[in-house]
Design a protein around this nucleic acid. Structure first.
Lengths: 248, 248
DNA sequence: ATATTTTTTGCAGGAATTTGCAGGAATTAT
DNA sequence: ATAATTCCTGCAAATTCCTGCAAAAAATAT
């Protein structure tokens, strides 16, 4: 089979099915994995597909999960690792949106068997990449700024849920003013989520500690776990140790 | 064997089999590789075939791949332009998911002032990029394969809606079997959407015309508008003209 | 018929492409 | 943590391509 023939076949297949495995391709075409890899690499360089570990995806499909461009990416990865350890098989987990939650979504064990409930479009897109995670999306009006569901319909849906965990991506936290945010609609949803969960886990980079915004989500005393990229013994966390049962 | 004869034979063979190897040719004709190479080069210069490393490919084969891949964006843009012209300010618009709908979402006029209701995560992410579009997301379980909401909760939500338009991204359309798809859950949602709208508009690239899949979404007679990238007078669309009120 | 010109062909050599493989790194699965 | 896959780099073998050149063949002119 000629090289060009192979590449045409690959492109055709990918436009039809949106994805392809290298291993399947080299069987069908009877060439080595390396050859397929090189074909995919070339096509990717030409922008005709997106190469991923183990195969390739259609460009139109992949546009949504850019992993770069996240502020404090490495810090958030540390947070995500710590957060993921709280999730057990079979749990119902409520999550908000935000880049830290996105990192959590990416850091989840691939074979985790749990149900994730969220109103965040980007987070949902990450969750569905895990084969054994069931994703429930809370529908209603979408807030453009935060790419998250807001509105009364969403809140009343959330109130019907009794989840095990709620992961809260937060904008500001302060001993006195608690967890605060600046979008009224989003705050309503976050409030509802914390009330619908047995355990509330807040995720934040250290930069946001001891900052305050306009609207309260919950007071510190309603927080069960606080996770940051810092060592739990870091002095910056000291003031919270009195009130928050668990600091990671 | 004369030069003319050789070239005649090469063209004949390539129109029959879509491809040829230089090595095969010089064996069959009993001439040197160089001669074959020169023949192929000449024919390629005349545009009668496409020369590639190791042989040659039929132009039709090559053109098809080029146009359907490199220019598929243009095709979908054409479809999107036609589709967008149906949307008026103030309308409520239901849409499914799929790559063609995605292109529509990207091609919407920036100032459009309408409400879009969808269960597709990627489509919703596109809609929210338009400042004046209000986005309502239909929540429920998310189907991993299609990145779209499915389930009874979603369907009963949709049934409460009375939208002006429903844009249907389709997988297969056939005069006899109608619009068909291959995922039972997704079909239920699509069905509900078509019933909740005054006007049903199907979008598809010509490649999918006259193809059939396992499960019926709606019969052709329930379709109000069929939009493709082709000219409405294209013979491929002829069989649909009897049943579909409007073909663009 | 012979000479001259033009076209075609094969060849030599060196350049470029393509492919598979080995190894070790990186990622993913169990 | 361990095993299995997948990826990457460099390398080597095989194939194909290209350029220039000269012999052969064909066409044309004398």
């Amino acid at each position: 089979m000629l090289k060009r023939e192979r590449q045409q076949y690959i492109l055709h297949h990918i436009n039809l099915h949106n994805r392809i495995l290298s291993s399947d391709l080299c069987q069908v075409m009877d060439v080595s994995e390396d050859t397929i890899r090189r074909d995919l690499q070339e096509l990717a360089d030409e922008g005709k597909l997106v190469k991923v570990h183990g195969g390739a995806l259609s460009t139109s499909f992949h546009d949504f999960a850019q992993t770069s461009l996240v502020y404090s990416h490495d810090k958030k990865k540390i947070i995500a690792q710590k957060a993921a350890s709280y999730i057990q098989d079979g749990m119902f987990v409520l999550t908000t949106g935000g880049t830290t939650i996105l990192e959590l979504a990416r850091a989840l064990p691939h074979h985790l068997n749990a149900t994730f409930i969220t109103g965040s479009l980007p987070a949902a897109l990450e969750y569905i990449r895990h084969p054994k995670i069931e994703v429930i999306f809370i529908g209603d009006k979408i807030s453009k700024a935060s790419q998250i569901t807001v509105g009364g319909e969403a809140i009343s849906r959330i109130q019907q849920i009794k989840a095990d965990l709620c992961f809260l991506g937060i904008n500001a936290i302060d001993v006195e003013h608690g967890i605060t945010d600046n979008d009224w609609d989003v705050v309503q949803v976050k409030k509802a989520m914390t009330k619908a969960s047995k355990k509330v886990i807040a995720l934040t980079i250290a930069e946001k500690i001891n900052t305050v915004q306009k609207i309260e989500v919950i007071p510190i005393r309603d927080l069960d776990v606080l996770i940051t990229e810092l060592d739990p013994s870091d002095p910056l966390l000291e003031p919270y140790r009195k009130t928050v049962p668990e600091i990671k």
